[in-house]
């Protein structure tokens, strides 16, 4: 792939706008032994991704696992279960019913957990502070009841929009700083290698 395209993709990568295919193309590029010196500092980032993907069990892993399983089985040979024993239908049903009971209990608890905040006057869930014709909504804030600041959705939208833009600007500032640091790293690399 042309270097200009790679650089354009890298720019996208720093902005977190690359697709999976584009990241694969970048990884492919950085797998080459010869790449421009200024891109050398970035190689590590993509190599790391490759190395992580290539993690495999070492030699003899299967054998060691089988030996351990056999060892555990022979240790427990005198116990309740004998190797190769067929489970009775009753055991299967009992096992299932315990699991079903556990699952039902968890679902019940989660359901109750969800229902309790709904029943109590919550954020826009009814109650004396509910919105209706511009009446302020009671927001259940943790530890204290907080009223909705705006009764007009247009005004609320304007504030949300502004807050999101501020967050966006500051996030991008962080991204630019990261880019600057990488450039600095590259300059240091060049100073060391003389590329």
């Amino acid at each position: 792939m042309e270097q200009s395209k790679i650089r354009a993709l890298l720019d996208k990568y720093w902005k977190a706008e690359t697709s999976v295919e584009e990241e694969r193309a970048l990884a492919e590029f950085f797998r080459q032994p010869e790449i421009p010196g200024d891109l050398e500092p970035v190689r590590g980032l993509f190599q790391w991704r490759e190395e992580e993907a290539e993690l495999r069990p070492g030699a003899g892993f299967d054998r060691r696992m089988l030996e351990r399983i056999e060892g555990m089985e022979s240790e427990g040979g005198g116990g309740e279960r004998v190797r190769g024993e067929v489970m009775s239908v009753g055991m299967v049903v009992r096992g299932f019913s315990i699991r079903f009971a556990a699952a039902a209990a968890i679902i019940l608890c989660l359901g109750i957990g969800l229902l309790i905040p709904m029943i109590s006057p919550g954020p826009g869930q009814g109650g004396p502070g509910s919105a209706g014709g511009g009446v302020p909504v009671a927001e259940v804030a943790p530890a204290a009841a907080v009223k909705d600041t705006y009764t007009d959705p247009n005004k609320a939208l304007a504030v949300v929009r502004r807050a999101l833009l501020v967050a966006s600007v500051r996030l991008n500032e962080g991204n630019h700083i990261t880019q600057r640091n990488i450039t600095r790293l590259h300059d240091s690399w060049q100073a060391v290698t003389g590329d």
């Binding site: 826009g124 804030a141 909705d148 504030v159 949300v160």
Partner: peptide, 21 residues
């Protein structure tokens, strides 16, 4: 938030799920 919501030194903006709807 609860601690400082009524504190005069703070400007508080709160937009609830109802308002988002």
């Amino acid at each position: 938030f609860g601690k400082y919501v009524d504190d005069d030194r703070f400007t508080v903006v709160s937009i609830s799920p109802k308002m988002f709807r």
